[in-house]
């Protein structure tokens, strides 16, 4: 059985209540959360190859952890989002939902 072809880094969507975001707000309002997920293997630079090699070879006398490949992360966030909490107070939250994703 062949392995599933990895999906490239892209924006995915999920419907959640504000309470489920884990930001400490208590609100049953449902929001659309956009997040980044997927593979970044196609976006490796010489830097990543070198770092991977360095990790295998071992930095002489150094214990620095180095990420050896690009990560799928938001490159831009959606604009502010406002909601009413369960105590009838309004809140505005920033940088919680991804607008664009990239391998960085």
């Amino acid at each position: 059985k062949r392995a599933r072809r990895p999906r490239p880094c892209s924006v995915r969507e999920l419907e959640l209540t504000v309470s489920e975001l884990g930001l400490g707000y208590d609100s049953d309002e449902t929001v659309l959360l956009r997040y980044c997920s997927g593979q970044c293997t196609a976006h490796r630079h010489n830097y990543d190859i070198t770092m991977e090699h360095m990790m295998k070879a071992g930095f002489k006398g150094r214990r620095d952890k180095v990420s050896k490949g690009p990560c799928c992360r938001p490159t831009a966030f959606e604009k502010n989002f406002s909601f009413l909490d369960n105590k009838s107070r309004y809140h505005t939250i920033h940088n919680v939902s991804a607008k664009n994703c990239g391998c960085v």
């Binding site: 419907e15 049953d28 309002e29 449902t30 929001v31 659309l32 989002f81 909601f83």
Partner: peptide
């Protein structure tokens, strides 16, 4: 609350 959801989406 359903109306708020529809708007948020």
């Amino acid at each position: 609350l359903d109306a708020a959801k529809a708007c948020n989406l």
